[in-house]
Amino acid sequence: MTDRAFAPTLALHLGVIAVLAVLQFVLPDYHHGLLARIMVLAIFAMGYNLLFGYVGLLSLGHAMFFSAGLYGAGLPVFHLGWGVPAAFAAGIAAGGLLALLVGVLVLRTTGVAFMIVTMMFAQAFYLAILYFAPWTKGSEGFVLPQAARAIDIAGARWDLTSPSMRYWTALLLFSAVLALTLYVARSPYGRVLVAIRENEERTRMLGYDTFATKLLAVVLSGAICAASGAAYVLIFGYAGSTLASIQYSILPLLWVLLGGAATTLGPLLGTVFMYYVIDVASGYTTAWLLIVGIVLILLVLFFPRGVLGTIRERWVPWLP
């Protein structure tokens, strides 16, 4: 983060976005749809990375922020007939508020206690979704009607049920969040986040209110994950309690570890990679949990910095 040339970084990120944009004209239908989904979930991973990678706080409960966005956006559409933009905003707000509330409590703990407390809050949130099944439809979930999933802008219709519009919307949101993480990572605020990860006591003695700094990071991370959840329900039209289960707290951790924590592009890389590993493997076996398990163990044993983290360490020190 030293005051260095920004040009290669910018070129790299624009290049990635450009490749994703071009891919949609090249890919066959199946992969086209899969990649749209991956981009939405990569936003989830980027939100997770902000807290885990940069601040060094390992949460096992981010499914609650993702699903806060999912239901925060999905329920108003399903029950109240809200429009897409208002629902999207409601989803993000739900995640941000939940993160504020949870953050004030969980940031009093550190290390292992932090991991367990985040997991428990997420579990309570998951159970609450089941408990309120009359509204949330519990584990069966609900499907948003096709007609509700479109935005009318000045006469033009932005239809989220068409594959190409889904892809563009996913790409747009992905790019926006990628730009946001890149901005945060290079900003003075990002420098303080990393400093807290490295040595919180020293950071405090440089005059920083580390609690407030971390709380903001939790809220930002929660809001980004909620944006992913909100986008998920609005673009793909489905919400169910499985998406709030502990599985969905572990997955972003896995994606980020794999791609490289505290790298801007690692979350995308990890999500893409994991999805395709499972996709390829499912041709041979249905045991995709086994693969998740093995990859997790291999990563922490031999590859704790992930793909991009290792590349940065060995070859490309400027990689953000």
């Binding site: 983060m1 030293t2 005051d3 420098r191 990393v194 400093a195 490295e198 040595n199 006591e201 020293r202």
Partner: peptide, 11 residues
């Protein structure tokens, strides 16, 4: 000594 080891001297 408790400098931030993974950051540059500048940072």
């Amino acid at each position: 000594t408790s400098v931030f080891g993974n950051l540059t001297a500048w940072d």
